[in-house]
């Protein structure tokens, strides 16, 4: 069995800021198993930062709880645990611009509680992982945006964390640096690190995260990559009668547009077969049938759109 298996469970966590009229997080529950990369997406103000603050121990939830378990054992002293095992990579460049890249690494490494040899080894490891060899002697303020992002990440990796929170790690970087950062994330996944990754680049989230949650209005919606992005689209040869239309809508839970097209998000295979059976029973002529992949962007826009409509 692999050691250092850290699972995180968020149980019914709600949070309300002082003087705020509504909850920033509303009874959120999610499980983050060890070694997965979890993507958090959502518009600004959706509650991502609040959730990350709670996961980092910066905020205490108004209700509910966060549980960290290491090798199936509950962690009692979470503050100490977070300091030892969790690293943050803020969206801002959280290091000292007047120092060189190497001086920054040495300074932050000195705060990790390493003895001298361990410190040097940790610095060499992150230099290699983040490919910082060429800029070590340069002032941090004068290196490119891509290198700044890598240094930001490298500092977080100095303490060899088991859990890593990445807040938009590729924002504003050139394609070469983006590729390097994403490759590093893949490499961290292979090391069974747990990664929580927020980004507005939905294609990156879709490509690199094992599990994705969308936050909207303080609520979390899980996006199942395998099941939930299948869209069934059936076009009938003739306009359906009102009676058949109602029957199909009632049975499938899907809507028919222009009285001859059925569009349906299909989550389970069983539902797909039920719809097929129903269409056969209805004896409607089928002009075309398409089962396609719905992208995360489509799903995101659909969800955000429906919520906007619901909210208004």
């Amino acid at each position: 069995m692999q050691e250092n298996m850290i699972d995180i469970e968020v149980k019914n966590v709600s949070y309300q800021y002082k003087e705020a009229e509504r909850l920033s997080l509303e009874s959120i529950s999610l499980i983050i198993p060890s070694g997965i990369c979890l993507g958090l997406i959502g518009p600004n103000g959706a509650g991502k930062s609040t959730l990350l603050s709670i996961l980092s121990g910066l905020l205490q939830p108004s209700s509910g709880a966060i549980t960290f378990t290491k090798d199936k054992q509950d962690i009692v002293n979470q503050r100490h645990f977070i300091q030892e095992n969790v690293a943050l990579v803020p969206q801002e460049y959280a290091f000292y611009f007047p120092l060189t890249v190497m001086q920054n690494l040495e300074y932050f490494a000195s705060l990790c509680g390493y003895i001298s040899a361990q410190q040097q080894s940790a610095i060499q490891r992150v230099i290699q992982e983040c490919q910082l060899e060429n800029v070590l002697t340069q002032k941090s303020k004068s290196i490119s945006g891509g290198y700044k992002r890598r240094l930001n990440l490298a500092i977080a990796l100095l303490k060899d964390p088991q859990v890593l929170y990445l807040d938009e790690p590729t924002v504003g970087v050139d394609p070469v640096s983006r590729k390097a950062i994403l490759a590093l994330i893949e490499s961290l996944k292979k090391q069974h690190k747990t990664i929580i990754f927020t980004s507005h680049m939905l294609s990156e989230i879709e490509a690199h995260c094992d599990d994705i949650y969308m936050l909207k209005g303080g609520q979390a919606f899980q996006f199942d990559k395998i099941q939930s992005n299948r869209l069934l689209k059936v076009t009938f040869t003739h306009t359906l009668t009102k009676a058949i239309e109602r029957k199909v809508e009632r049975l499938t839970g899907c809507q028919i547009s222009q009285r001859n097209t059925l569009e349906c998000q299909v989550q389970k295979d069983e539902t797909l077969w039920q719809i097929m059976q129903l269409l056969q029973q209805s004896e409607v002529g089928i002009h075309s049938m398409q089962l396609g992949q719905n992208s995360l962007t489509d799903h995101y826009l659909t969800l955000m759109g429906s919520h906007d409509t619901a909210e208004h």
């Binding site: 980092s56 121990g57 910066l58 100490h80 977070i82 300091q83 030892e84 969790v86 690293a87 943050l88 803020p90 969206q91 801002e92 460049y93 959280a94 290091f95 000292y96 932050f108 705060l111 990790c112 509680g113 500092i155 977080a156 303490k159």
Partner: peptide, 14 residues
């Protein structure tokens, strides 16, 4: 504080 360094340091073992 503004660069997030203080938040980062808060999660360091210090």
């Amino acid at each position: 504080k503004q660069s997030g360094t203080l938040i980062r340091l808060k999660t360091f073992p210090i």
